[in-house]
């Protein structure tokens, strides 16, 4: 279990670059949803992907740094309540680290299920619990408003994390090589 939180140089580099991609996607690559005026954030698919490969610390930091940085670029300052919620979601996604066989080149039925259950829990806690509570504590936003917003965000993020994260992990699994498997022929 301790292994889950081990941090080596590669984890740090993955965090730094993952956060750079997160920032970019968060600002520019939103897939418009069929519901008007809303869009799916591809960025959460990416934070879930990195979290599954590099663990909860990387996942939490990627979403936290990435969200804070893109807020800072767009609004001049991070909106802490949502930034923290993003970090929490990334952390929980990271619990899928070492629970799937993706590093061995397999990401099928059971692994897909594990990953998606974890990401659904992560998104639900972050957007239905953490973000609304912080908004209420800091800004005294009306509860009905923040919970409605939170549930909508959770659903959208579950869809985009699920679809994009799963596809990325399948693609990644295909690139993994098994022991002694490579020979010219």
């Amino acid at each position: 279990m301790k292994d889950l939180f081990k941090v080596n140089t590669k984890t740090i580099v993955a965090t730094g670059l993952g956060a750079a991609i997160f920032t970019l996607l968060f600002m520019f690559v939103k897939v418009p949803s069929p519901v008007p005026e809303t869009s799916f954030q591809t960025a959460y698919g990416v934070s879930a992907f990195f979290a599954t490969l590099f663990g909860p610390i990387a996942g939490a930091l990627i979403a936290f740094i990435g969200h804070a940085l893109s807020d800072a670029i767009q609004y001049g300052t991070p909106w802490w309540s949502w930034v923290i919620a993003s970090g929490v979601s990334g952390f929980i996604f990271g619990l899928a680290f070492k629970r799937t066989k993706v590093e061995e080149g397999e990401f099928k039925g059971k692994d897909i299920l594990t990953f998606n259950i974890i990401q659904i829990i992560g998104n639900a806690i972050a957007w239905v619990v953490v973000a609304p509570l912080l908004d209420i504590i800091i800004y005294q936003e009306p509860a009905s408003l923040v919970f409605t917003q939170g549930i909508t965000a959770a659903i959208m993020n579950i869809v985009s994390t699920g679809v994009i994260g799963t596809l990325l992990l399948i693609a990644y699994a295909a690139t993994r090589t098994k022991k002694g498997s490579l020979s010219k022929g």
Partner: peptide, 21 residues
């Protein structure tokens, strides 16, 4: 310091990632 360095790396590589994209 490791988390702090992750932030430094983000700032260092953000323009590269943007150009790659």
């Amino acid at each position: 310091y490791k988390a702090a360095y992750a932030v430094a790396l983000t700032l260092r590589y953000f323009p590269d990632v943007q150009r790659d994209y």
